[in-house]
Amino acid sequence: MIDYITEDRLSQFMKSAFIEDVGEGDHSTLASVPANQQGNAKLLIKEKGIIAGLEMAKNIFNFYDPTLEVTLLLNDGDAVNPGDIGLTVAGSAQSILTTERLVLNCMQRMSGIATKTHHINELIKHTEAKLLDTRKTTPNFRMMEKWAVAIGGGQNHRYALYDMIMLKDNHIDFAGGIAEAIKATRSYLEDNQLDLKIEIETRNLEEVKTVLAIGGVDIIMLDNMSPAEMKEAVLLINNKYVTEASGGIDESTIAAVAESGVDFISVGALTHQVQSLDISLKAV
């Protein structure tokens, strides 16, 4: 299991989600379906893509009703086609109906993210560059979105603000410049006995040269540069630091960016510009 996916975080998310969706009760189901009614349902895939969220679905079903019998017929990360069945669930019909929408909301979005991640990864597989996600995620749904990126073959960047230092343009400007930002950061880490990697954003080749002259960082971000500028920056850096390309990179530009020689490419669109995969839960 990925380290940011913990039992506590999963439980907290599911509890909050059920409070939001069910509240005092699923009155539609309570009114129409007898409490002792048993049933079976299948998760039907209706669109080609990469499936993600099956393990999450099992967690949701059993968090709400531990007596539900969930059988996973596919694995997260599998390629799927219309007509495939991802899982079956059997037990209380009321429980199946009440959990249906939360399961589908999670799986549809996670599968959309995994599908997009896989597609973009295919565009750069001829290079050594690795695809990263960002913090451009849905509030309170980051864990599942980053999980989906990993399922789709991407790599997770920092999970949140606390696990890495990233000095972006506004940090640098408010700090008074690149040198001031790096110096203050290193002092802060030393004073607080923190062992965190430092990444710094550069916007042009002059800023890259400034960082190289100062040192004291782990990763240099090349932000909104052209592929030609990135290639020149990579030559300047000469493997002294890890490089990350960022800024408005999409399917039409990512191959050229990857071919510039950067180590990583972060793409916010993996999580904030995604079409959900068409999936449904059907009674059997």
Rank of each mutant, 00 (worst) to 15 (best):
D195A: 15
I279C: 06
V284A: 15
E47D: 01
H118C: 14
V22Y: 04
K209Q: 10
E122R: 12
V284I: 14
D78C: 09
A256M: 04
E251C: 11
D263S: 08
V211I: 09
L30F: 10
I113R: 01
M107W: 03
A35R: 14
G112V: 02
L205P: 14
N62T: 15
A228S: 15
K46P: 04
V267G: 03
S16A: 13
M143D: 07
Y162M: 11
R158N: 05
L72M: 15
L161F: 08
T202K: 14
E20T: 05
A148L: 10
G39K: 02
T115F: 01
L102N: 03
V70T: 13
Y162C: 12
K197N: 07
L194D: 02
I279P: 04
K197G: 11
V89L: 07
G86E: 00
K116Q: 02
I200W: 08
L54W: 03
E47H: 06
V262L: 09
H118S: 15
K42F: 14
F13C: 08
H118M: 09
I279F: 04
K15D: 11
N170Q: 01
A148F: 03
D76C: 12
N36W: 13
M166D: 02
V242E: 02
T271R: 02
Y4I: 09
R158E: 03
K116D: 02
V22I: 13
G152S: 06
V89H: 07
E69I: 15
A256W: 03
N170H: 00
K197E: 07
P82R: 06
I237L: 04
E47M: 04
G83Q: 02
A35T: 14
A114E: 03
L30S: 11
V217Q: 04
G25H: 01
G83P: 03
E199H: 00
K48M: 09
V33Y: 05
T98V: 13
K197S: 09
V149K: 00
G152A: 08
I172Q: 01
S266V: 01
E20M: 09
S11N: 14
M166L: 13
I249V: 07
N140I: 15
I113Y: 01
M166P: 12
L97Y: 00
D21G: 03
F174W: 08
G86F: 05
R135S: 04
A93D: 06
